[in-house]
Every structure is written in structure tokens, then in C-alpha cells.
Design a protein around this nucleic acid. Sequence first.
DNA 1: GTCTATATGCCGATAGAC
DNA 2: GTCTATCGGCATATAGAC
Lengths: 188, 188
Amino acid sequence: METKSTVREQILDHAITLMMLRGYNGFSYRDLSELVGVKTSSIHYYFPSKDDLVLEAVNQYSSEVMAGLQSIDAALPAGEKLATYTRLFGKTLGDGDQICLCGMLAADIESLPESVREAVQAFFRANESWLAAVLAQGAKEGTLVVKGKPESAGRTLFAALQGSVLASRLFHTKSRLEDVEAMWRVAH
Amino acid sequence: METKSTVREQILDHAITLMMLRGYNGFSYRDLSELVGVKTSSIHYYFPSKDDLVLEAVNQYSSEVMAGLQSIDAALPAGEKLATYTRLFGKTLGDGDQICLCGMLAADIESLPESVREAVQAFFRANESWLAAVLAQGAKEGTLVVKGKPESAGRTLFAALQGSVLASRLFHTKSRLEDVEAMWRVAH
DNA sequence: GTCTATATGCCGATAGAC
DNA sequence: GTCTATCGGCATATAGAC
């Protein structure tokens, strides 16, 4: 029983990919039209305005990432959780030319409506607090370094990861994510 | 003796400000035209193509930042150097709606020519190695925390600062930069 | 140097046939 | 649902007068 994706799903998936590549102002309904194989007017049928499309893209992307986080075994040591998270984060790079959708939209935020800002903020908060919990666990285990409150540390770690994918793409390298992870690890 | 800026300088300054707000694909010659008070064709006289304009904008921005770095007294303790750097970085936020030009262009990099990528890379490298030197000094003094090589630590710190201005703007707050700085500081 | 005028093309969006 | 056709607007860029 093959489950082929609907036109609507294809539009959303390609919109996410294109925005991770070029950002909100760097893709068009025409781009999507050519990728999906329908006319631009058909895209307007599913997503009346570009803002509607972006908002749904963020929501789908967030759901996928949240599902990825929940799939990480809660019984794991903190160090392995962080390693898994870093690896997942590195996968957003794709062929090396993409960054996190919400990191990209944070850069484009001044061109976007308030509804999108709130959705992107929610994504940031969810990741930051997930990382804060992992850091708190690691501090208790003595495996991760946490200076100050775990909440501050979680925000800093997430920022470092966002900045690192940006730099990884800029320099066509992959190694910068691991540098970040190592920084929060207790020296052997 | 007042030194009024030339049209060319005004164009470049407004281009930098606009890009720090909305990015490469989010501003136009028309925007500049209205801000400076000349027609778009006059802007093309100074900067034949938009890519020319962006490249010169990056170069001017880099020069300004480099001058800011050189103005930091080399005799200062590492902790104070880092504090000054963080404060300078926070000033890029402007009225709270701007991010670092080169962080923004790193997000837009897949829409830009190779010449701009190289200029943005040079900016990243200069900042990363400046921070690496400060961290090395701080490690010697016992005032800053450095795990692993100073080069890796410098890259991670710079990434964290880039990610933090992004988040600061997203959440309309200013406090995230100091969280980052505190993370590299040796606990009292 | 700055202007008017224009070229050419893409943009998001809508109306209405099928 | 998908199409054709089209709208009004804005994009970068250029030609040529002054």
C-alpha cells in the first residue's frame, strides 16, 4: 500500500526546503509551481497568501523536529542525548546548503507577520528548554558543563548551534557542530 | 568644519542598515532611492549592479568592525576585552531590529555571488581568531574558560554570539548576549 | 552626476471556465 | 482542484538628455 503524497504536502515540503536554502524573500510561487508541477494559481488554492504558506511550513517543521526530540530515549545519559541532538541538527544541512528553517526565518523576521514570529519563538523556546533539561541532567551526572542556570546555558547552547550551522554552510564544512558539542562536555 | 557625507556614502550606509534589517532579498534600489533622495538610476551610477553594492557594503562594514577591534586596548585583561567585544556586538542590534550584516548575509549566502561569500568568510575568520586570542589570554590569566584549542573555542563563541543577536531580536530582548559572555567567564 | 523615460521580467494574487 | 488569462505593481537595469 504505497502512500503517495498529496499536492498540498508536496507544496509544503518544497516550500520548507526552498526556505531553508534561500529564505522567505528568496523563493516564489513560481519556484514551487515548477517543482511540484502545478500552476501557481493552484498553489493559491491551498495557501491563499504567502504568509499562510510560511506559517503552515513553520508548524509542520516544528512538529517534525518535536517528534525527533521525543524519539530520543529519556533513559539515555545526558551526553548521548546531546550527541543525538547535535547529529539531528547537523542533518538540517542537507546537501550542505540548508540551515534550520526557524533560524532562517529568524533572520527574515522583520519581513514577516506577527503570527510567524510567535511560531518561530515557540520553536526556539521548545529547543532551548529541551537542551536546558539535558544540561541539568548532565550536571547532575557530572558529564556536562553547566555554568549558571540551566535555562541560560540552554539558550546559549542553542544559539551556538544555530550560529554553527550558518558557519558550516558558509565555509562548506561540517565540523563546526561537533566543536560546539565538545565545548559543553566535561573533559575526560 | 562640517563634513557632510556624499551621496555615495549615504547609499552605502542605508544599504547596510536595510540589509541588517531585512536581508539581501528584502530591500530594493527603490527603498534606497527614497531614503537618500535620488532616483534609482543615480544609484546604478555608483553601484552598477546590486551585487556590486552588497560587496562594497560588506567591505565597509568589515572595516568598521575591524577598526572597533583595534581600538580595544591590547593591554587590557582578557575578561574586559571580551566584555567590550560583547558590548560592541550588542550595538549592532540598533533599535532592536537589526542583526550583524555578515550574519544576515550568511543566511542569504545561497542567493549571492562567490565574491560576497569570500568577503563574509573573511569577516567570520577575523572575528573568530580575534576571540580565540582573547580566550587564550584569558586561559593563561585564569579568568576565562577555554576547553580544547582556542581556535575551536573562538569559533563556538562567535557562533553563540551570532545566534544570540538573532534570538535577541526575535524575542525583543537584549539580555541574551550577556548570557553568552557569562558562559566563558571563570566562576568567581 | 542626476534626471526622465523605458525595457523586460518576475512578483503575489484573483476571476472565471472546466 | 486545476487550469488559462490577466491584473497592477515592483524588481533590476539601461539609454540618452541635460
